[in-house]
Design a protein around this nucleic acid. Structure first.
Length: 473
DNA sequence: ATGTGC
């Protein structure tokens, strides 16, 4: 693909072939070879062919090839345009929540960290296909969950109302309709609420090792040396089934509206069509489910800490700093226009003062949460006014550099163990985690710096992992 | 990502 440098760390993907608009890709010189190393630019060009797409389609510095839109892609569409399940992703509202504590990380030795990991694992099922431990309650409130999101589980006793004001969209996307969700998805979803999943999903005990902006960090409740907990999970089999159902269903739907599909992965329907409205309503169910999932896991983590530490919750802390979606399509106002912004492996990052910030973060901009790999740092960022050019979006992580199978082929046990250093992890079998090895990911520092150097985002704090809980059989 | 290949 033809790519033109248009500034420091910025590249234009000019209109070529059937592209309706151009693309804009952020990459440092070192990341550029990764960007060119797979089909992600081709996939971005395909997205630029869809009806109603708004200039530009974007590639974040963590971009890599995915199903339909590349992971690390942003596609905004006007009201006359299309909605695409493949441009949201398989794991609808895969996202990250950060919890703060009142505790110094340095007072946690390895045996105590191990105890905490064991207790968290006892309360939060991890691994593919696992069923939740609160099935009695969650089956009963399942319908409320898909319509009300995190609020439904707070009402059921998981967490407190203050948590809700620190979740993107207050933990609930309007417009959900369970009638648009298949029985299969409902079955899988009602069993899996309150579970972590596998792959890149994790619960991490972290230490804030650097504060870059003390004033904003204080507003976020963060300080150097602090123990934090990060949760990365999504809508489990529920969102996966919804994505599968609609990306298949929209393949025959698209031509009925005269849409030429550039790829099956970008199957889509007009937003204002029966098929498009159905997907949006089903997607909103999964978005709300994922917010509720992270809310239940938060309550479980609080319980684990109280049990292990023998302290009162108010002395531990574990308040929500923020909760962001990484895979979502949302109606937002940009430049006076109402757009459906598809973010797939991208994080909304609003600047200080933006009216769409939650009231508690109106003055600072909300925290944008960006996890690294299991052996490297995670970041708390905020957006700047310049991020208007990316529809107020930043990267969502480090981004893969090796596919899961390539990681299994090329990374040795010794290399993996060396890269983890002193960091504790729950998986005993190297084969179970090799696809998540730090070597399979880009350098998070390079990825974040790419956007910071442009001025699209600012660093607020950096956390280093102390103990990582991953999906386990 | 995923009751992990159609």
């Amino acid at each position: 693909m033809k790519l033109e440098q248009v500034g420091f760390n910025r590249y234009r993907l000019p209109r070529q072939g059937k592209m309706r608009v151009s693309g804009l890709v952020y990459a440092s010189p070192a990341l550029l070879e990764h960007v060119r190393g797979d089909n992600s630019l081709q996939q971005l060009a395909h997205a630029a062919q869809l009806p109603g797409v708004v200039e530009p389609v974007l590639g974040m510095p963590d971009i890599h090839e995915g199903f339909g839109l590349p992971i690390g892609g942003v596609m905004a569409v006007s009201e006359e345009g299309v909605i695409s399940a493949g441009a949201v992703g398989m794991d609808i509202n895969c996202g990250v929540r950060l919890l703060r504590t009142e505790l110094s990380a340095d007072s946690f030795d390895r045996p105590l960290l191990r105890k905490l990991m064991t207790e968290v694992e006892a309360l939060v099922p991890t691994g593919v296909g696992k069923k939740g431990l609160h099935r009695g309650i969650t089956a009963r409130i399942f319908e409320e969950v898909v319509y009300q999101g995190a609020t439904a589980v707070v009402k059921a006793g998981f967490g407190c109302p203050e948590d809700i004001e620190r979740i993107e969209e207050n933990g609930c996307l309007p417009g959900a309709d369970l009638a648009e969700v298949s029985r299969e998805a409902i079955k899988r979803g009602s069993e899996q609420l309150g579970t972590l999943g596998g792959g890149n999903h994790f619960i991490e005990l972290q230490r804030v090792d650097k504060v870059f902006d003390p004033e904003v960090a204080e507003r976020f409740g963060l300080f150097e040396g602090q123990l934090t907990v990060m949760i990365h999970t999504g809508s489990r089999g529920f969102g996966h089934q919804i994505c599968t159902d609609y990306s298949k269903g929209h393949i025959p739907a698209a031509p009925r509206y005269g849409i030429e599909l550039p790829s099956k992965g970008l199957a889509c329907a007009p937003i204002d069509s029966a098929e498009g409205r159905s997907y949006y309503a089903a997607m909103a169910c999964a978005v709300n489910y994922a917010f509720a999932n992270r809310q239940i896991i938060t309550a479980d983590i609080r319980q684990a800490f109280v049990q292990v530490l023998g302290l009162r919750l108010e002395d531990i802390g574990l308040q929500v700093v923020y909760d962001v979606a990484h895979n979502i399509a949302k109606w937002e106002e940009h430049g006076g226009r109402r757009l459906l912004v598809h973010r797939k492996g991208a994080t909304r990052a609003l600047p200080p003062g933006h009216p769409a910030n939650p009231p508690v973060y109106r003055g600072t901009g909300h925290p944008a949460l960006v996890p690294g790999s299991m052996g490297t740092a995670s970041y708390v960022l905020v957006g700047t006014d310049l991020a208007a050019e990316s529809f107020f979006s930043v990267n969502h992580g480090a981004g893969r550099t090796l596919s899961r199978s390539a990681a299994e082929r090329s990374i040795t046990k010794e290399e993996f163990e060396a890269s983890m250093g002193e960091i504790l992890y729950n998986t005993r079998n190297f084969r179970d985690v090799v696809d998540e090895a730090p070597q399979a990911y880009k350098d998070i520092e390079e990825v974040v710096d790419t956007l910071v150097e442009i001025g699209l985002t600012r660093k607020i704090a950096r956390m280093m992992p102390m103990a990582v809980i991953k999906g386990k059989d």
